[in-house]
Design a protein around this nucleic acid. Structure first.
Lengths: 200, 200
DNA sequence: ACGCTGATGTCAGTCACTGTCATCACCTCG
DNA sequence: CGAGGTGATGACAGTGACTGACATCAGCGT
């Protein structure tokens, strides 16, 4: 038999998620996580850059997915259509692991440091998307702005999906949110945005 | 004379910015900053929550500024107009301290941890703006999305202004960027977005 | 058998951050 | 004018995140 139990990284991820869930991120030490995974603290740091990183997929594969999808989209599409296409293509990654994703999100929602890291990961998506859009021939600022707006829409759609009793899929939330974005930035004449009734 | 030299907080901010600039954020210890300010490490932590926070205005006053400006805007304005109004009102805060702002931004640009914190501060602006928009009667999702898009535009405009030889003011960049955003989300028929020439 | 490799363990060290108590100029109030 | 309260600071010990350096040793190829 082999010298070590297999999938050390996976064991660490599992142990960390469980401990963060049960006793909170702050109250959990790296040594604890490592022990639960049958490893040492030093080995944890060989697999993850820091205590937060264990909650995020290494290499941020979503960035590659989005960039590839954006690059592969028909060249006739407008920038926001390209982004819509890319986001829709990436959505199943979340929907397939909905339970895990929601558990992870609960941990992140409970801790500001983890929220910071999540924002950094989303910023990396913006960079990747912007780069892909530039490759498609878009001017730098337009590409950056489109990428920002696209990920902004994704953030809103994702949050709605996470806190959703299961009514809509993530892809549907994305479509709805992008539609809202289009209405938001449309000329003010036909402003058909929904409002609550409480204007003074 | 008084027991302590005045403005301990300001001295710490100044010392930190100088040291971060000269030797880098990582290579600077909190003890060093405190010593340069004629104080102790412990006192540093009485003024700032952590080593990064010293670079960011305490209480994130910009959030209040934006929220107030959004609340004060004429009720006839469309969501994005409200945001445009609020951002334009906040712009002078940066332009008045352009040198300091750019120096600060150079330090942040050189360090991922500081970029994370900056993203968190921007996210706080999104929250504040979204809240203000909800108070104006906008539905939750619309408010959140408008706030996200507004700050996204601000990020792009701000970055252009920081790396600008002085050609345009921040307020002008904001206006331009918001215009671009409107064109981006407009129906695809009249797509007049600028492109580079390199489409394959 | 021999040595190389790669994942892990061990250990010491730095530094960010915190809790706690002491200090002491200044202020207030009697 | 003296007693006591206040608030900003210092001193100090402690925890835990993270790092560098070196040791170990099953499995692999030669």
């Amino acid at each position: 038999m082999s010298r070590w139990k297999p999938d050390a990284r996976g064991r660490l991820e599992k142990a960390a998620l469980e401990l963060y869930n049960h006793q909170g991120f702050d109250a959990t030490t790296v040594a604890e996580i490592a022990a639960r995974a049958g490893l040492t603290e030093r080995t944890f740091y060989r697999h993850f850059a820091d205590k937060r990183e264990v909650l995020f997929p290494g290499g941020n594969p979503l960035a590659g997915t989005l960039a590839d999808a954006a690059a592969a989209a028909p060249s006739s599409l407008a920038p926001l259509e390209v982004i819509s296409h890319a986001l829709t293509e990436a959505a199943p990654v979340f929907e397939e692991r909905a339970d895990l994703v929601r558990q992870r999100q609960a941990v992140i929602a409970a801790n500001p440091e983890l929220q910071e890291r999540e924002l950094a990961k989303l910023a990396a998506l913006v960079s990747a998307l912007a780069h892909a859009l530039r490759e498609r021939g878009l001017e730098t600022t337009v590409a950056a702005l489109a990428a920002e707006i696209g990920i902004a829409a994704f953030k809103v759609a994702y949050e709605r999906w996470v806190n959703d009793p299961g009514r809509l899929t993530l892809a549907e939330h994305i479509r709805e949110t992008l539609d809202t974005a289009r209405r938001l930035t449309a000329p003010a004449e036909h402003d058909d945005l929904p409002r609550t009734g409480q204007e003074e």
